[in-house]
Structure formats: structure tokens, C-alpha cells
């Protein structure tokens, strides 16, 4: 899109969009590192992920201030208006994703010796498609592609299926050995957190679609079959 006559306006929008991408990048590494900390039992890394969430919060509140200022001073219209509203929504989705990743890292620090590798692997396995969803939706945002956004939006079903199978798998480990219950409960929450992150990714996909197309993806058209 060509530049505004007032060049500072274009620069402000670019800065906002860059901050959203920065938040996206941080959230992405938080998911990867929290599950890496889990799989390697790396408590130091887990602690570091928890701290990284603070950075996400700071950028989010800064983005919010930018948005308030843009609305008050520029009275955005058309695509600019949609971009700014989407940035507001997407930044809070990313902030939530950070919270959930932080929670995984916190729980990774609380696991006792009764956890076996299969249990750790089940979570790590599930984190892969979730990270991919986030990566794909950030690509959709960066390239302003409604097609890519729609693809992410339609793929959430896979994550729901993943979650259901991890849930069942985890139950079998707990049934095998009740000493695993405390750690297992933590890990069920981890799986739920990952599933929630998937939901936030589909929300972001909806905002990207709205920003670019100016229309809404209809919830009715979405493939959905989750039971939990």
C-alpha cells in the first residue's frame, strides 16, 4: 500500500506492526523453550522463559498506548482503522499466549521424579503443531494473506484431536502408577495450555482476515469436532 501524505502516520503504523511481530517472535520462542525445558528437564531455561513473559507484557502495554494515540490523533479510516483494531486484539492474544507458555515453564519446574520420558514426549509432541500454528499465523500477518490466515483457522481441529489423544495417553500413565498423579495433573494442564494457545492462534487468524479483507470469518463454517 502506498504511503500516507503525512509520512509520520505511515511510520507509526509500521512501528505498531513491527511491535506485533516482535511480540509474536517472543511468544513463539517461549512455547519452544518451555517445552524444551520440559523435555531436557532444564530448570534454568524454564526460569528464563518465565522472565521473558515480562518483556511481552511491556511491549503489549506500549502497543496499547500507541493505538490510543493513533486513534486520538489520526482518526484512522478504512484499512488503517482495521489494521489498528486488529493490532489491539492480536497483541492481547499474543500476551495470553505468553501467559500460557509461561505457565508451562512454571509447571516444568514443579515436576517430581515420577515423570517418565513418555509423559514428557507426549507434551513435546503436541507442542510441535501448536508452534507451527503460531508460526503460520504470524506469517499470515506479516504477508497480509487472508488465504494463509484462513488455513490456520481451519487447522485448529488437528490440535483439538492432538489434545484429546494426549489426554487419553496421560490417563493411562496415571492409571499404571498412581505416584505419577501430581506430575500428571501438571502435565494435563500443560496439554490444556497448548490447546488454548491453538485457540488464540485461530483468533489471531480471524483478526488478520478482518484486517485484510474487511469481512469476518464465520464461526459456523469452521470444521469442529472436539469433545472436551
Amino acid at each position: 500500500m502506498s504511503d500516507h501524505i503525512v509520512s509520520a502516520y505511515s511510520e507509526e503504523l509500521e512501528r505498531l506492526s513491527a511491535d506485533i511481530m516482535k511480540m509474536g517472535g517472543i511468544a513463539e520462542t517461549m512455547i519452544v523453550d518451555s517445552t524444551r525445558a520440559l523435555s531436557a528437564n532444564d530448570l534454568e531455561l524454564a526460569r528464563e522463559v518465565v522472565l521473558r513473559d515480562l518483556l511481552l507484557d511491556v511491549i503489549e502495554s506500549d502497543a496499547e498506548r500507541q493505538i490510543v494515540s493513533l486513534i486520538a490523533r489520526r482518526q484512522p479510516m478504512g484499512h488503517d482503522l482495521r489494521m489498528i483494531l486488529s493490532a489491539m486484539k492480536i497483541s492481547s492474544e499474543l500476551e495470553r499466549i505468553g501467559d500460557l507458555a509461561k505457565n508451562i515453564a512454571k509447571r516444568a519446574q514443579r515436576l517430581d521424579d515420577n515423570v517418565n520420558d513418555e509423559m514428557r514426549n507426549a507434551i513435546v509432541r503436541m507442542s510441535k503443531p501448536v508452534s507451527r500454528q503460531l508460526n503460520n499465523v504470524l506469517n499470515a500477518y506479516a504477508s497480509a494473506s487472508p488465504e494463509k490466515a484462513k488455513l490456520v483457522w481451519e487447522s485448529d481441529d488437528d490440535i483439538d484431536n492432538h489434545y484429546n489423544s494426549v489426554f487419553r495417553e496421560m490417563l493411562t500413565y496415571l492409571v499404571e502408577d498412581p505416584r505419577r498423579i501430581t506430575a500428571g495433573a501438571h502435565m494435563l494442564f500443560m496439554a490444556k495450555n497448548l490447546e488454548r494457545i491453538g485457540d488464540h492462534c485461530t483468533n489471531i487468524a480471524e483478526f488478520v482476515y478482518y484486517q485484510v479483507v474487511g469481512d469476518y470469518l464465520s464461526e459456523l463454517e469452521r470444521p469442529k469436532q472436539d469433545q472436551v
Partner: peptide, 19 residues
């Protein structure tokens, strides 16, 4: 018109991009 104009010329005008 102000949230999702159909024509590029309209979009350029309302968002302050007119060259």
C-alpha cells in the same frame, strides 16, 4: 465507505494517501 471501501481511489482518499 469508511471501514471497507470497495474502490482503491476511495481507500486512498479516506486514509490520506492521495498523491
Amino acid at each position: 465507505i469508511f471501514t471497507n471501501p470497495r474502490e482503491k481511489r476511495t481507500e486512498d482518499y479516506i486514509t490520506g494517501r492521495f498523491g
